[in-house]
Design a protein around this nucleic acid. Structure first.
Length: 266
DNA sequence: ATGACACCTACGAGGTGA
């Protein structure tokens, strides 16, 4: 199963690019972030015409997350994280599609310090508590999306410039580390230790051409999912397309459980 | 310090987010 994540930065403004990438990459499951569209403006007809079923949680102007599945309807299990009922940001959606898939858009948190940064840390705490519950489940779980965190210095083109940015503040890196420490596997880093890998390049300062990027889109896998992991890659070329998002799509390949069992019994 | 892009409102261009 090929599972992808893509922060589209406006699903309607990006529709042409998204459809082109879907047609080329043919992922089985896709998590989208930053739809920037209200619930009724999600382009479900075009998504369905491309062969995907979808569930989504929209929001006017900002945020918004979706899960797409080729040839099937994702079975919705949750919208929003528990722990702060007054939080109305559309940042989490979860479904069962060959295991459990949680699609998240963690708050950016800038500027630091301030209420937005505090909200980011609160959101992280809620994710931490809920993620621990997910690990108790029998089935494989994948928590995927835009975490708005560079986990280590290797994940930033120039770490010293980012020390007081909400994406790289020590509190935020600690929160990510603590989350992973519950027993999750960071799929890209696991398969590519020591390698410079970016998933985001700013629109300005010619960042993409200079490869001045950040690794902020992550796949966290439960042990059951990590056992099936065979590949993890960034579709970097998509970032170079005209009218591209500032993120590139990222994807992993999970070996089919059935294939694995068949091999074992041989 | 600057910049790019997409969203909004509402018709022209400026504010916000990140």
């Amino acid at each position: 199963m090929k599972l992808a994540t893509y922060n589209v930065n406006g699903v309607n403004g990006r529709l042409e690019v998204l459809l082109r990438w879907l047609d080329q990459a043919k992922p089985d499951v896709v998590c989208l972030q930053e739809l920037k569209a209200p619930q009724e403006k999600f382009p479900i007809k075009a998504i369905e015409a491309a062969g995907y079923g979808a569930i989504w949680q929209g929001q006017k102007s900002w945020n918004g997350v979706a899960i797409l599945a080729m040839g099937q309807e994702p079975r919705l299990t949750r919208k929003g994280l528990p722990g702060e009922p007054e939080d109305e940001h559309s940042r989490y959606i979860e479904a069962i599609v060959d295991g459990m898939v949680g699609c998240l858009y963690l708050p950016n948190g800038n500027p630091y310090p301030g209420p937005k940064f505090d909200y980011k840390l609160r959101w992280f705490r809620r994710l931490h508590d809920y993620a621990a519950e997910l690990l108790e489940l029998e089935e494989p779980v994948v928590l995927v999306g835009d975490y708005n965190v560079m986990p280590t210095e290797l994940d930033v083109y120039k770490p010293e410039r980012w020390t007081n940015d909400a994406l790289f503040r020590v509190e935020v890196r600690e929160a990510y580390k603590k989350l992973v420490g519950q027993g999750w596997t960071d799929a890209l880093r696991h398969l590519h230790p020591g390698e410079r890998i970016y998933t985001f390049w700013d629109y300005f300062r010619n960042a993409f051409a200079r490869d001045a990027g950040l690794r902020i889109d992550h796949f966290l896998l439960s042990s059951g999912a990590a056992r099936r992991l065979t590949k993890a890659e960034v579709d970097k070329h998509v970032r170079g397309w005209d009218h591209s998002s500032d993120h590139a799509p990222v994807w992993i390949e999970l070996q089919d459980e059935l294939v694995k069992k068949t091999r074992k019994t041989k």
